[in-house]
């Protein structure tokens, strides 16, 4: 059921999940001859939601559940942001916009974001190709009933010219603790930007990196086919995986005691702390995760950490508790949740 704190997909692992946390495909689409969200009247925005709603009522092939953002509490909205199911903008605006989610929360269709439709498919591990194939099918299903703005020359028309063409943003979230420790991340970011890819923090544009997590995505959407864009990212990801694994091996060989010390200290703190901030927790979770991936820590599963990374965030934490909390109370409750899950 949607609205649960843990998305079903977070309980599963995917290929190469020692480095790749998740793969995401996003398609930007607009309805033909309705002004884009920023220029649209309230009636037009309602019309867009109505059309999707009708489609779901008639033939809900992908089992999507439509939620109007205006009907949700602030914490519930922000929880969806923390779970990467909607954008911060959609949550903040929360008038005449909506999201349709699949039961496992793999599929998310944002309505009246910057574009009328923003379709997202999110899978664990490195499964970009699989995510694209799924998104492609959902896109076909939407297009059967809805007139999508498409131009022979420019392809799918979007509000921002940086998305026009395929409207495709493919991205992966990677965990790079070893490359970070050996100070190679900056070098790698500059190399990646030369390949037409962008590196961002955990929550997208302008956000900072926490817990050694990085998002890498394509920049160019016009003049390349979807397959080319995705293959390019997959190839780069394979290289990142190799580099990160190499760095981990070298660290384990050359700096075993240092590494074990960092990992067990992190584990100890998480297991026994009585209050903790998000930043500290994310840092420590990153180290424990590294310990699991290296086989140093064997008594917990890495999916527990995937779940922890989401439930310790402020809004999700408060939804879980069922009440508003002060920052101090959140620090205490956060530590409690972590202790419980690591016992």
């Amino acid at each position: 059921m949607t609205g649960e704190v843990i998305s079903q997909w977070m309980k599963k692992t995917g290929p190469d999940s020692d480095v790749v946390i998740s793969s995401r495909i996003r398609l930007a689409r607009n309805l033909e001859n309705i002004r884009f969200t920023n220029q649209a009247s309230d009636d037009e925005l309602k019309e867009v939601i109505g059309k999707i709603n009708n489609l779901l009522l008639n033939n809900n092939k992908f089992d999507l559940n439509l939620l109007e953002l205006g009907d949700l509490s602030k914490n519930k909205r922000n929880m969806l942001v923390e779970k990467h199911l909607i954008s911060p903008d959609l949550s903040e605006k929360n008038i005449n916009n909506a999201v349709a989610l699949s039961s496992e929360e793999i599929i998310s269709l944002m309505i009246n974001e910057e574009d009328h439709l923003r379709l997202q498919v999110l899978l664990p591990g490195l499964q970009l190709q699989e995510a694209w194939e799924m998104a492609d099918k959902i896109d076909d299903y939407l297009e059967q009933e809805i007139n999508i703005a498409f131009d022979e020359k420019y392809g799918y028309l979007t509000s921002c010219p940086t998305n026009v063409g395929t409207g495709l943003r493919s991205s992966i979230m990677v965990h790079l603790p070893a490359l970070t420790m050996v100070n190679r991340v900056k070098k790698f970011i500059s190399a990646i930007s030369q390949l037409g890819l962008a590196v961002r923090g955990l929550y997208g544009e302008g956000t900072e990196t926490v817990g050694n997590l990085y998002q890498i995505s394509n920049q160019v959407t016009l003049g390349r086919s979807e397959d080319e864009i995705i293959e390019n990212l997959i190839e780069v990801t394979h290289q990142i995986i190799t580099q990160e694994r190499n760095a981990r091996e070298i660290l384990l060989k050359e700096k075993e005691i240092f590494l074990k010390d960092q990992i067990y200290r992190a584990y100890g703190t998480l297991k026994y702390a009585y209050k903790i901030s998000v930043e500290e927790a994310m840092k420590l979770i990153s180290n424990v995760r590294l310990g699991i991936d290296l086989g140093i820590i064997e008594d917990i599963e890495s999916t527990i950490l995937n779940q922890l990374m989401v439930i310790i965030r402020p809004a999700t934490l408060q939804v879980l508790k069922g009440e508003e909390m002060t920052i101090e109370d959140r620090h205490i409750y956060r530590a409690q949740l972590i202790r419980e899950r690591l016992q």
Partner: peptide, 19 residues
């Protein structure tokens, strides 16, 4: 603008069925 952003000005990807 598109040439500057994408180095290209022609879509070569997916063509939707009906459109």
């Amino acid at each position: 603008v598109l040439r500057r952003i994408h180095g290209n000005n022609r879509h070569t990807g997916k063509i939707p069925k009906r459109a």
